[in-house]
Design a protein around this nucleic acid. Structure first.
Lengths: 207, 207
DNA sequence: GTCTATATTCTGATAGAC
DNA sequence: GTCTATCAGAATATAGAC
């Protein structure tokens, strides 16, 4: 392989993939493809070619394609929280932060070709027997729910007229509205369900 | 073939499959398998053998496996409504009927090995480009939302203290809570999210 | 690179309707 | 007899996993 072809390969790779280890490149590629195409619809050959590793290297790092799904869920959970926290931090008031997770969805739908909640998608593709994956997904959702609870608590504490609102009931409701909004927005390819979720919360909080 | 062997064959077939045409058997089998295993994870050979048709017969009725997904969505939508309507009719009061769709989920989770909303699962497996499927799913959800609206309207009309509740806002909220509850109950394999949805509605309606 | 699985097509045969 | 629907299975091509 000449230097030029190396240059070419590097140039067509996303910046984020340069200099990363084969293992990191594989996981990153798998995340992109699994999310965009789904797990079963993504072949191992595509993962191998797009992550620019040798087939032997792949099977050196992972015993099988199935194992990748664990890393996928783990990685997506990490990303999801990092993204949310970073964006929520931008908001100034407790009210903005409270509605933040829902407001954030809009740009995500437009900028990325959004395909719904990755964890929901995993649950619908894998058999419900894989305890390890289900545990990770449960953990993610529980963390997400706590995140919503925290945002709700801060909002409640700031507003005296909200003092009788139960933060736990609010968090449970938020989680359901949030997931329902994502599911419907994905199917409808419209932000209307997200608007409905916001309206429902405002209604519930009496404002 | 003796009369006895015919008896035997008929007896091992599910009643529902007796006397049905090959086409009907194929669709019925496909519905079962796509729902239980997912679309991509289900091979054409399994569909063919379990529906007891010849391979040529299958391709006589369907140009490809992909086409089956349309009949799958259509059939599941039909079943879904038939099941809901039948069960809701059993309830006596407007209040019971209003919470009926959520209460019904419990037995479904226990009796069938529930794998979440079939339409949600289709959306996560197929590329978002297939307009025909997306249209059917949109139509299903819109009908479902109207169903919730109707139940809400009857409940509101019956109770004077609910007279200021907007049936449309309530229906939007119901749809989101319902879908969120199904998604979470499937992932958690617990009815807690369904209970949360019921609690949220009761809270919202001030009771 | 190898081997398996999958989707699809093709061949030949049977049974009933007209 | 002809036509159509069905069945059984071989043959092919492709894609997949390893």
């Amino acid at each position: 392989m000449t230097d030029w072809s190396v240059c070419f390969i590097l140039s067509v790779m996303t910046n984020s993939k340069i200099k990363k280890s084969p293992r990191e490149r594989i996981i990153e590629t798998a995340c992109d493809l699994f999310y965009k195409q789904g797990f079963h619809a993504t072949g191992i050959n595509q993962i191998i070619s797009e992550s620019a590793v040798a087939k032997a290297s792949f099977y050196d790092h992972f015993p099988s394609k199935d194992e990748l799904i664990h890393d996928y869920v783990f990685e997506m959970s990490k990303r999801d929280f990092a993204d949310f926290c970073a964006e929520i931090d931008e908001y100034d008031t407790a009210e903005e932060r409270f509605y933040g997770p829902l407001h954030i969805l809009g740009p995500w739908f437009i900028e990325t070709d959004y395909r719904g909640c990755p964890f929901q998608n995993v649950v619908s593709e894998i058999p419900l027997k894989d305890e390890r994956i289900l545990e990770m997904i449960k953990k993610h959702r529980a963390r997400e729910r706590d995140f919503f609870r925290q945002l709700g608590k801060e909002y409640i504490d700031e507003r005296s007229e909200l003092s009788d609102v139960d933060p736990d009931a609010l968090a449970d409701m938020y989680e359901l509205l949030f997931d329902g909004a994502i599911a419907n927005a994905t199917a409808y390819r419209s932000m209307d369900p997200v608007e409905s979720a916001i309206a429902s919360l405002k209604n519930y909080l009496g404002r």
